[in-house]
Simulated assay, not measured.
Amino acid sequence: MADYFWDFDGTLYDTYRGMVKSFVEACTAYNFSVERDQIYKSMRRTSLHQTFDKFLKQVDSKKKKMIVDKYQIIEKSEQADDLPFEGAVEVCNWVIKQGGRNFLVTHRNKSALSLIERDQFKNLFTGYVTSENNFPRKPDPASLNFLCEQYQVDKNNAFMIGDRALDVNAAHQAGIKGILFDPDDIIVAKVVPDRRIKRLLEITL
């Protein structure tokens, strides 16, 4: 009987397609050229915020804000096409059948909850933390610790599933195990996950 904490972007949902597309289009709208593949790798290896900082470091603050605002508008329109990864719903159901619970821990706002509600598996989650909760961003373990305390989670039998090193780091700092979901072998980091998987259904094996 184990509890599982899920990252949203790139773990529960395949949102990078829309995020990368939105990033490129927002930059292009302001005559700033970026490569899709480089943006994707940066988002996977660091974060959206760090990717903006890295690729727009030569852009003045006013123009950067305009690009970020444009990104948010485009990305919101792309959300209609965002879907769960293969096996996501099945694994969430499996967790519950094993007597465990699912929790959502995301830097995204409540749009994440709207998507899992749209796809009819919000009821598979016992609790969640979104950006509206104003916790420090992962790898800070504050959001995980909050949920563990609120729902009396046994940290010896709990896992964080994420697609980036920062998810595993957050898990370890919270005293739980970290599962790295790396479907395309992009993550190269010093962090050592307790498990490394390419398909979510591997969790059930």
Rank of each mutant, 00 (worst) to 15 (best):
G18A: 04
P84E: 03
F125N: 07
E117D: 15
R17K: 14
V168K: 06
A170K: 01
K110Q: 14
V105G: 02
V34P: 04
G99H: 02
W6Q: 08
G18K: 01
L180D: 03
H49F: 09
Q38K: 14
I96C: 07
T106F: 08
K190T: 14
C92M: 09
V34Q: 07
D182M: 06
K190I: 06
K64S: 12
F125Y: 06
G99K: 01
Q173F: 03
F146L: 05
R195V: 09
G87E: 00
P139Y: 05
K21Q: 11
R45P: 00
P136Q: 12
T106P: 12
Q173T: 03
A88S: 14
V95C: 03
R137F: 11
P141R: 04
E90Y: 02
K65F: 03
L104G: 03
I116Y: 02
N169R: 13
D14G: 04
Q79R: 15
V105M: 10
Q58T: 14
D9C: 09
F23Q: 09
K76H: 10
S77M: 12
K62G: 07
V91L: 12
P193L: 10
S131D: 06
I197R: 10
I116E: 07
R195C: 11
I197A: 10
N93G: 06
L200I: 12
D182F: 01
S111G: 07
L113E: 09
G178F: 02
D7T: 03
F103D: 04
Q173N: 13
I203M: 15
V91F: 09
K76M: 09
L56K: 08
S22C: 10
G87R: 00
A112P: 07
K177R: 15
S47V: 02
P183Q: 05
K97R: 13
F103Q: 10
D140F: 05
A171C: 07
L205S: 13
F8E: 08
N157E: 14
L180G: 05
Y71I: 04
F159S: 07
A26T: 09
K70C: 11
Q50E: 14
K97T: 10
K97D: 15
I96H: 02
D184H: 13
G99P: 02
A165H: 10
G10V: 02
P84R: 01
F8I: 08
K63M: 13
G175F: 08
T15M: 02
V95D: 00
V24R: 11
R108H: 13
I203Q: 02
S77Q: 14
D7W: 01
L147D: 06
P84H: 04
E75G: 00
G87Y: 00
A170Q: 07
Y4K: 00
H107D: 10
A80S: 12
N109D: 15
W94E: 04
L205Y: 08
S143M: 09
N123Q: 15
K65G: 03
T46L: 08
P139D: 04
